[in-house]
Amino acid sequence: MRFNSSNLTIKRRTAVVATDFLRRDDKMAAMLPAIERMAALQKDCATALPAMFRYCDILAFEDGQLTLSVPNAALAAKLKQQIPKLQETLAKRGWQVSATRLKVQMTKAAEIKEQMRSLSLSDAAVTAFDDLGNNLEQSPQNATLIAALKAMVARRREI
């Protein structure tokens, strides 16, 4: 998403409306400091490890124990190596984290899926593949390759 002032204005207005709503209810207002604290901790963690914290969330922070939600074991293994850096950065920002636990659970599944790259071929490349498909020897070994080349050329010429 591109940054622009209207997006920022909408986000601020939405946050103000949400906090005003929470302040009106006594039970919800009592939760507001904890919510603000967790949001600040999430922001500080994301600042410390921006690439990794893109998919992570804070589940709990009690008695110096930070529990993080990680979407898969691969990211958990990478994050585990970065825990000392994370704790050091958080300590500099005033957070006293003595231990960090990682809990693998899917939280942001839709965001993790990477978009497929589309391969673009020039007209000359498509023509070269077409020529290759037409000039290969017609044999049982080449049949699958010829069919694949013809299908690829047909798809590229439709685009």
Rank of each mutant, 00 (worst) to 15 (best):
M1C: 03
R2K: 13
N4Y: 01
S6C: 02
L8R: 15
I10S: 13
T14F: 04
A15F: 11
T19H: 01
T19G: 01
D20L: 00
R23M: 00
R23L: 04
R23N: 00
R23W: 01
K27Y: 10
M28W: 07
I35A: 08
E36I: 03
Q42F: 11
K43S: 02
C45K: 06
A46W: 08
T47D: 14
P50S: 05
A51N: 10
M52S: 09
M52W: 15
R54C: 10
Y55V: 03
C56W: 01
I58L: 03
L59N: 04
A60G: 01
E62A: 05
E62Y: 05
G64C: 12
Q65L: 15
S69H: 12
P71D: 06
A74M: 13
A76K: 10
A76H: 00
L79E: 00
Q81C: 02
Q82V: 08
K85T: 14
Q87N: 06
V97H: 11
S98I: 15
S98Q: 14
A99R: 12
V104R: 03
M106W: 11
R117D: 15
L119D: 04
L121F: 15
A125K: 06
V126Q: 07
D131Y: 14
L132M: 11
G133A: 05
N134P: 04
N135T: 14
E137Y: 09
I146L: 03
I146R: 05
A147I: 08
M152I: 07
R156P: 06
I159S: 14
I159D: 07
